[in-house]
């Protein structure tokens, strides 16, 4: 009756004799215009979605289209009067025989594979550890927050001091343990491993937190059942915990692999790609080519190839994630 009390309905309302609401309705009275929402829900829903989608289109699709177009041109924006000149796919031809580019792909793949495997294994172990309800675990958890909250550029600077051959604490610790000193970032053989070490230091804690959350979300009844069945710790881990964590491990792999491909900041401050090009990954080479040498067209071609590779790998992982989730009936 809130909208437009027609005469009929008004008499209905005031017809009650027991007081209370029907009696009240007569006092409400007064014709008010029929109430109606101005826009349909569907229109509003679309309007709500448009700004975000538009921004994502502008900030991703447009730059990528731009990169694809530029990748077919020769263009040096540092020259005042330069215009992009179409060069017939020459950039791509050059790319495929460019040892520097092929080398960065090799380095990127080594970096991603080694870092992600280490992060996953250490993360699983730490995740198991921090789900234990023991005294002192709170301190461990807080300590684990530190590395990954740090800006990767800052982490790079910090580890540069730790790795310092002369006066860095790492070599001092090795000396104390009676082990030979290492060259770390200064050595062509150890530089990549050192960068991976920093990446792992930063990224193991988040992996461990995710694993811990996954373990806590497994029904305790499953662990009880496993205990009643007489399973050992390792049997429980192998046959209960690990299978139940499959979707979570898939999420970790997806996110970590994608992030590891994108790593740029640490390399910038830790090694600047060196020594020589021993720690130069694709992102770094693109930056160098585009922003330092201003070969924008060539850098764009690298970007496009890199994007295609990353895109294909992501799709594989998204597929795997779908399968893992449907296998254990996890949410989403």
């Amino acid at each position: 009756m809130t909208g437009s009390p027609s005469p009929a309905s008004e008499s209905d309302l005031s017809g009650g004799e027991s007081g209370g609401i029907p009696a009240l309705a007569a006092r409400v009275g007064g014709p008010t215009p029929p109430w109606r929402p101005r826009l349909s829900d569907r229109t509003i829903a679309v309007l709500m979605l448009v700004p975000a989608i538009a921004l994502l289109l502008v900030t991703t699709v447009y730059p990528i289209a731009n990169a694809i177009i530029l990748s077919f041109h020769q263009y040096n924006p540092s020259l005042p009067l330069a215009k992009p000149v179409f060069n017939n796919g020459e950039n791509y031809v050059r790319l495929l025989s460019d040892p520097a580019f092929l080398n960065t792909i090799r380095i990127t793949v080594i970096f991603v594979v080694v870092a992600v495997i280490l992060e996953l294994l250490l993360g699983l172990g730490l995740g198991l550890l921090i789900t234990a309800q023991r005294r002192g675990i709170g301190i461990v958890r807080v300590a684990m927050l530190l590395p990954f909250m740090m800006a990767p550029v800052a982490a790079g600077v910090l580890w540069r001091t730790l790795f310092n051959v002369q006066w860095g604490p790492l070599n001092d610790i090795l000396r104390t343990l009676g082990l030979p000193e290492q060259q770390f970032l200064a050595s062509p053989d150890q530089a990549l491993a050192s960068v991976i070490m920093v990446e792992v230091w930063q990224q193991v804690p988040p992996v461990a937190f995710i694993v811990a959350a996954g373990i806590l979300s497994i029904s305790p009844d499953l662990f009880k059942a496993s205990a009643v069945d007489g399973a050992s710790f390792w049997q429980t881990f192998r046959h209960v915990t690990l299978p139940m964590l499959r979707p979570i491990i898939a999420i970790i792999l997806l996110l970590r692999v994608m992030d590891a491909f994108k790593v740029y900041d640490i390399i910038q401050t830790l090694t600047e790609g060196g020594p020589a090009t021993q720690t130069e990954n694709v992102s770094y080479l693109i930056w160098k080519t585009g922003m330092r040498f201003f070969q924008t067209g060539y850098a764009s071609a690298m970007s496009v190839v890199f994007l295609v590779i990353v895109f294909l790998i992501s799709l594989v992982f998204i597929r795997a994630l779908d399968r893992a989730q449907s296998a254990t009936g996890a949410e989403r």
Binding site: T2, G3, G20, I21, L24, R27, V28, T32, W35
Partner: peptide
């Protein structure tokens, strides 16, 4: 809430809510 959404005058809102509440 339902009354406010429909732009019912606030004295009417108060009256109706109090009626219903006492009921």
């Amino acid at each position: 809430f339902g009354l406010k959404v429909r732009k019912t005058p606030s004295d009417v809102v108060r009256q109706r809510v109090e009626e219903a509440a006492s009921l």
